[in-house]
C-alpha cells in the first residue's frame, strides 16, 4: 500500500508543500500578493506627475499608518520570501527532473515570457533590493537622500542615467514576468474554463503592459526632463 500520511496539521502542510502542485500554489498565492502590491505601488507613485506636494503627502500618509504599515511590510516580505524560496526549489527540481538535456529541443507553445521567468525573476528580485536601498532606506542614494522628501529623492535618483536605465530594464522584465505570471497564477490555483481563460489571458497581458508602461514612465519622464 502507498503509505502517505497526511493527517496531522503539520504533516498536512509539509506534504502539501512537498508536492509539485503545492509549491506552485505557494508561488501563485505569493505572486498574487506581490502582483497586487505592484499595481497599488505603481498607482501611488504615479502621483509623481501631480507634483511634489501630492507625492510627499501620500508618503506621509503611508508612514502614518504605523502598525498597519509594518503588517503590510511583513506580509509583503513573507510573500517575497515564499515566492523566492519556492522558485529556487522549483528551479532545482527542474534540473533534477531532466538531468540530461536534449541535443536539440524546439519550443512550440512556450511564450518568450514563460521561457524567461527563471531569469526575469532573479533580476527583478535584485532590483527590488536596490529599489529599497535607493528610495526607502537611502543607502544607494548616499548624501543626496532626504528622509521624508520622496519627490526630491525620486528626481535626484532618476537623474542618474545608469540608475534610470536599470529601473527601465527591470520594469520591462517585471512586465514580462507578470505577462506570464498573472495568467499562470490563475491556472496554478485551478482557475481554467474555456469561457473565462481567454479573458484571463487578456487580463494578464493588459496587466503586464499597464505595469510596464506605468513604471517605466517615471524614470523616463525624469530623464527627459518632463518632471523636475
Amino acid at each position: 500500500m502507498s503509505s502517505i500520511a497526511v493527517n496531522s496539521g503539520l504533516n498536512r502542510t509539509a506534504t502539501f508543500y512537498h508536492s509539485v502542485v503545492g509549491k506552485k500554489v505557494v508561488m501563485a498565492v505569493s505572486g498574487f500578493v506581490l502582483s497586487g502590491f505592484v499595481l497599488g505601488h505603481m498607482f501611488g507613485n504615479l502621483q509623481l506627475f501631480q507634483g511634489r506636494e501630492k507625492l510627499n503627502h501620500y508618503a506621509e500618509m503611508l508612514q502614518s499608518l504605523g502598525g498597519l504599515l509594518w503588517f503590510a511590510r511583513f506580509v509583503l516580505l513573507s510573500a517575497a520570501v515564499l515566492h523566492i524560496t519556492a522558485a529556487f526549489q522549483l528551479w532545482r527540481l527542474k534540473n533534477e527532473a531532466r538531468p540530461q538535456a536534449y541535443v536539440k529541443k524546439a519550443h512550440i507553445a512556450t511564450s518568450y515570457a514563460a521561457r524567461t521567468m527563471i531569469w526575469s525573476g532573479p533580476i527583478v528580485g535584485a532590483f527590488l533590493v536596490y529599489h529599497i536601498l535607493h528610495f526607502t532606506t537611502g543607502q544607494a542614494l548616499g548624501d543626496q537622500f532626504i528622509k521624508g522628501d520622496v519627490y526630491h529623492n525620486v528626481i535626484v535618483g532618476f537623474q542618474n542615467p545608469a540608475a534610470s536605465f536599470f529601473y527601465i530594464i527591470a520594469n520591462i522584465l517585471l512586465a514580462i514576468h507578470l505577462y506570464h505570471g498573472v495568467w499562470s497564477m490563475f491556472q496554478s490555483l485551478g482557475v481554467n474554463h474555456p469561457k473565462y481563460t481567454p479573458k484571463l489571458k487578456t487580463l494578464a497581458k493588459v496587466y503586464g503592459w499597464v505595469i510596464g508602461i506605468g513604471n517605466v514612465s517615471m524614470p523616463l519622464a525624469v530623464l527627459v526632463g518632463l518632471v523636475k
Binding site: 502542485v21 522549483l90 519550443h107 491556472q187 496554478s188
Partner: peptide, 10 residues
C-alpha cells in the same frame, strides 16, 4: 521525480 507545471502549454 517528475517536475512541476509552469503553464507553458508545451
Amino acid at each position: 521525480g517528475f517536475g512541476y507545471c509552469t503553464n507553458t502549454g508545451e
